[in-house]
Design a binder for these strands. Structure first.
Lengths: 227, 227
DNA sequence: GGTCTTATTATGCGAGCGCATAATAACGCC
DNA sequence: GGCGTTATTATGCGCTCGCATAATAAGACC
C-alpha cells in the first residue's frame, strides 16, 4: 500500500530534486545488489524506489548517468569510511595499516552481493567514458590513501611508496575478490595477516624492487604512468 | 554467404555432436568477448556460430550448461598453457615462478575483452551451483600449481606453502584485475617485478606469518578451510 | 485561493529476449 | 538407392526491455 492511506490524500509526494536523486541512487544500488546485471533496468530500479519509470529519465540524462553516479556514491562511501577508520587509530603506522586491512575484510565488505554490484560496474567500464573516469578517480584515491599510510612507515624515505601502493592495493583487491567469490576459501583473518606480513616485509626492505635507488630497480621496474 | 555456393548444395552441414558442442562453446566465448553480458543470449551465440537457435537447446540442456562448459574450457585452457610454460623452464624455482608471472601478464592475458568474459562468469557464480563448482575447481588448480612452484624454493620446508599460495594467487589476481580494467595504470613489468619480489621475500623468511611453527603464526593465521 | 511551475505518472510503441513446438533435410546404414 | 535417425532449421508465443510522449497533480508563490 504505497499511496497515502487517507482516501483523498495525495497520490504522490513531490520531493526536492536532490533528495529524489539520492533515493534513485540508493534504489539502484539495492537493485544491483539483489539482481546483479538484471538489476540494470529502468523498470526494476524505479519499482525499487517506489516511483514510476519516467522519474529516472527526468532526473538523470539516462540510465547510464544514474549508474555512474551510483558507482561513484558507493566507491566514495567505502573509501571514506575505510580511511577514516584507519586514520582514527593512533599514530603508529603499522596499527593504522592494520586497521585499514581489518576494515577492508569485514563481513559486510566481503559480502558476495556487494561484490556483484562491483562486477556490474566493472563490466560497464569499457563502454562508458564516464564509468571509466569514476573508476580512475576512485582507484587513484585508494592508492593515494595507501601511499599516505605507507609514507608513515619508519624507513619510508627509502621506499618507492607509489609502487608499493600498487602492490599492496593489488594484494588487497585479489584477496577481496577471492573472498567475495567464495567466503569459505579462507578466513578473513588470513587475508589481514597476509597484508600485515607484506607491510612488514616492505618496511624491512625485503621487497627489493620497492627500495629507492636500487640499481636493479631501474631495470626491473618500468616507469609508472599516470594512474 | 554461408550456405554452399553450389545452387543445389546442402543447406547445412550435419556435424558430429562433439564437434558442434565445441563450436558452440567457442562461439559463446567469442560472443562474451564481443558483447559482455549482452552476449549471454541464445540468439547472439547461435548467430556467432552460424547456426540456428535451436541447436543450443539441442546439444545442451540449456544456456546455463553451455555457459558452464565455456567457463571450464576457458579456465582450463589458460591454466594449462600457463603452467606448462612455467614448468618447461629449467629446475630453478625462481626462474619457474618468473616464467609463470610473465606468462600471466602477457598482452593477451590482460586483454580487457577477455576480462569481460570473466566478469560474466563471476556474476553467474552466486546463482548457479554448476558455475560455482567450476570456479572451485579452477581456483583450486591455480593454487595447487602455485604450491608446486613454491614447494621448489630452497627453504620450502620452512614455509607454509598452502597459505603462501593464497597470498601469491591474490597478488597476481589483484594485479591482473587492475591491469585489465586499465592497462595504462602501470606496466606489466611492474606486475611481474612485484610478484618476483614477493617470492623473494617469502623465500628469505621475511613474510613472518608464512613461516612454519612460528608462534605468532597460530595466533594470526586462522585455519584454512577447504579451498 | 487561483495560478503557474514542474515533479510525477500513465500509456503506447517497436524490438529483442527465452523457450517450445513443428517442419525439414542431411547422412549413416543395409 | 530407399529408409530411418536425428541434427538442424523455421516459426510463433508471451514476456520485458528502453524510450518517448501526453496527461496529471502537488506544492510554492503572490
Amino acid at each position: 500500500m504505497k499511496p497515502s492511506s487517507a482516501v483523498g490524500g495525495p497520490k504522490f509526494r513531490r520531493e526536492a530534486p536532490e533528495l529524489r536523486r539520492d533515493e534513485l541512487i540508493a534504489a539502484t544500488l539495492a537493485c544491483l545488489k539483489k539482481h546483479g546485471h538484471d538489476g540494470v533496468s529502468v523498470r526494476r530500479i524505479s519499482a525499487e524506489a517506489g516511483v514510476s519509470m519516467g522519474l529516472i529519465t527526468h532526473h538523470f540524462s539516462g540510465i547510464d548517468a544514474l549508474l555512474a553516479e551510483a558507482y561513484e556514491a558507493l566507491a566514495m562511501r567505502l573509501l571514506t569510511q575505510n580511511s577514516e577508520h584507519a586514520f582514527a587509530a593512533g599514530a603508529d603506522p603499522y596499527e593504522r595499516l592494520h586497521r585499514y586491512f581489518t576494515g577492508s575484510f569485514t563481513p559486510e565488505a566481503i559480502d558476495p552481493a556487494v561484490f556483484r554490484i562491483w562486477l556490474v560496474f566493472w563490466s560497464l567500464v569499457p563502454h562508458s567514458k564516464t564509468m571509466r573516469a569514476v573508476r580512475e578517480r576512485t582507484y587513484g584515491r585508494a592508492r593515494a590513501t595507501l601511499e599516505r599510510l605507507l609514507a608513515g612507515l619508519p624507513n619510508a624515505q627509502g621506499l618507492r611508496v607509489e609502487a608499493a601502493a600498487i602492490g599492496l592495493s593489488a594484494l588487497m583487491d585479489g584477496l577481496w575478490v577471492e573472498l567475495s567469490l567464495n567466503p569459505r576459501s579462507f578466513d578473513a583473518a588470513t587475508a589481514v595477516a597476509l597484508c600485515d606480513d607484506w607491510v612488514q616485509a616492505l618496511a624491512s626492505g625485503s621487497l627489493r624492487g620497492l627500495r629507492v635507488q636500487s640499481p636493479v630497480t631501474a631495470r626491473r621496474h618500468a616507469r609508472i604512468v599516470a594512474p
